[in-house]
Amino acid sequence: MAGSTLEKLTTGMQEAASETSSRSPQAHRPEHLAAIHCENLSVFYGAQQALFNISMDIPRHRVTSFIGPSGCGKSTLLRSFNRMNDVIENVRLEGKVLIEGENIYEPGTHLPTLRKNVGMVFQKSNPFPMSVRDNILFGPRRQGVKNRALLEQIIEDSLRRADLWNEVKDRLHTSALDLSGGQQQRLCIARALANSPRILLMDEPASALDPISTAKIEETIYELKDEYTVVIVTHNLQQAARCSDITAFLYLGKLIEMNETAKVFRNPSNKQTEDYVSGRFG
């Protein structure tokens, strides 16, 4: 049921979005390409280098998790996939990031379209001080969706996907700030989904939440991979083990190891990885 509506929905959204974007339609996208492909990616904050020659392929419709100790560059890497690093001053980037085969650091890249397609959920929930409804519709409205029926559909579908619909369906007009912490974070997920992105980046989405809320979020993430490519940064190794298919371990700005999650946790090929996942440092 949800699937068919979503298909309709997604096509509608794309029609609306195609006016503003110049990207090629879905049908022509080569299937073998990775969702995200980066090549020799280095990021500098001023003189300090945060990432060193990272190259990786993140497969489509999988949950990929980035693990590593604090300050190892997980978040920086994640933020370079939707160019949110641009917001920070004095950031310089070398190398290539290809999303669906297109280099997003090419001059002339339309940032709003990129970020619509690559959604992001932040560590700390950050709903706007508006109603639940306006929060959800913030993205679609900025993309120029005006059709009322479609907007109503987007609200319900994205809230359902974020597992929040039953809790807030009667309070769509109340302020998002009145929701609980876990609900706020799921609202942020729903808000990102309302843009029908193809990739969803999540920066430690459950780190500030209680165990029950965390379980709900993880459940949501697991369900999302059917239709989205999910990249999640986490501190919590159990979380990475529970809900991701592929795990990448970063250490001091370098990609140490990237493989199927089961292999990384049970049989890592690198000593540092083994030390980290077995809790010897980090």
């Binding site: 939707n82 949110m84 917001v87 940032l111 970020r115 619509k116 932040f122 950050n126 900025r142």
Partner: peptide, 27 residues
Amino acid sequence: VPPAYTSAALALGASKWQTAIYVVLPA
């Protein structure tokens, strides 16, 4: 205005201008 708001808006595909008008001005 908390940077969390502006980041959220930008990450949702709002342009700088839209962020300024729809998020920063009301806040």
